[in-house]
């Protein structure tokens, strides 16, 4: 093990390499460029490939190729570039190719700005590309988690033969924190019998997402759906803080959850029963846990760096058991703990 003070974006790349990722294909964009730069620096030193692709479209298709050949591979971008990857992600899901894609979300729509936002929740969590597919989405909130989830993402991508996404933001990517890096994993016993590796064993294999006959495609979709159902049963991850006696339950992910943790501390100092439920996987979403908490809490307060996207999933989970309020900032404005505390106090006063 080794501890290093490191930026989240760099930790993501080191984690990926420790997990056995040996190719990175990307196109520069702020605030995700450090990921490409770190990959460019480290991949050649571990026998891996780095290519600055001609576009995000090309990058995700290079990932499609490397994944087809059975290699652990990844790409990363930020919002506008992530939009361009969507077709490719849909193909990866359709062809059942394991790969990891990070979206370091910035302000939008359009060119927006380079400040942290969460306005890509819909396009990251709800598919984004065409067709019936789902992807596990991790929302790390520290440099350590950028490493840990990057490593875990590769394992889950292999386990399900499906892309796994990491949705982060400029703060989590730019912030430096100590990270404990494990030893490199001996590239695990992967089942690569499906891949196309350019050898006699895999010569009969085909990587494809076409199923021309409706019944065949439906059967394929059923098979995919069974995987997604399994993910929903087993891959939900969340974290709670001071939640057991909470009357007001804050819900936020990524960098927001860090601010909310401070809010909880301050509210508790004032004697307010405030707790935090932080979704770690945005899909599958911790709906069940939220539904359980809905029986106990008086109000949910969802805080998002968007005009309210995750809040829809919270509402679906809560099913009118308790009021769900939303406090949002966007465009790169990150609310301070004081600001949110003020909001809570206003709520209490009614």
């Amino acid at each position: 093990m080794a501890r290093e003070l490191i930026k989240g974006n760099d930790a993501l790349v080191k984690g990926a390499i420790l997990a056995g990722c040996r190719s990175y294909f990307g196109y520069p964009i702020t605030p995700a460029s450090e990921i490409a730069e770190a990959a460019a620096r480290f991949m050649p030193l571990v026998g891996g490939t780095f290519i600055q692709a001609e576009s995000e479209v090309a990058a995700i298709n290079m990932v499609y190729g490397a994944a087809s050949a059975g290699q652990r591979t990844m790409t990363a971008s930020s919002s506008p570039g992530f939009s361009l990857k969507q077709e490719g992600i849909s193909y990866c899901a359709g062809s059942e190719l394991p790969c990891v894609i990070a979206n370091i979300v910035r302000g939008g729509p359009g060119l927006g700005n380079i400040a942290p936002e969460q306005g890509d929740y819909f396009q990251t969590v709800k598919g984004g590309g065409h067709g019936n597919y789902r992807v596990i989405v991790f929302a790390p909130n520290s440099a350590q988690e950028m490493c840990d989830f990057s490593m875990l993402a590769f394992d889950l991508a292999d386990k399900y033969r499906n892309p796994v996404l990491i949705m982060s933001d400029g703060f989590t990517g730019q912030m430096m924190e100590p990270v404990d890096f494990p030893e490199p994993k001996p590239v695990p016993e992967r089942d690569e019998s499906w891949a196309v590796c350019g050898d006699a064993d895999t010569r009969p294999n085909l990587i494809s997402s076409i199923y021309l006959e409706p019944e065949e495609l439906e059967a394929h979709i059923k098979k995919l759906k069974a995987k997604y159902d399994e993910m929903q049963r087993t891959e939900v991850r969340y974290e709670e803080y001071e939640a057991d006696d909470a009357e007001i339950m804050l819900i936020g992910f990524g960098i927001v959850s860090r601010v909310l943790r401070s809010v909880v501390d301050r509210a508790r100092e004032k004697g307010l029963k405030v707790g935090l439920l932080r979704p770690i996987t945005l899909w599958p979403f911790p709906s069940k846990r939220i539904a359980q908490r809905a029986k106990q809490v008086e109000t949910f307060l969802v805080v998002e760096l968007s005009t309210g996207q995750m809040v829809e999933d919270v509402q679906l989970a809560v099913m009118n058991e308790a009021p769900v309020r939303l406090y949002w900032r966007a465009g790169g404005v990150v609310p301070t703990a004081e600001e949110i505390l003020g909001e809570i106090e206003k709520m209490i006063e009614g």
Binding site: N61, V196, R203
Partner: peptide, 23 residues
């Protein structure tokens, strides 16, 4: 009768790049 990979419209050279680099 070889290893086969079907890809998105226009992206064969990008996919081929990934394949050849990985293998």
């Amino acid at each position: 009768d070889v290893g086969n990979v079907q890809v998105a419209h226009g992206r064969a050279p990008a996919v081929a790049t990934g394949l050849k680099r990985a293998s």
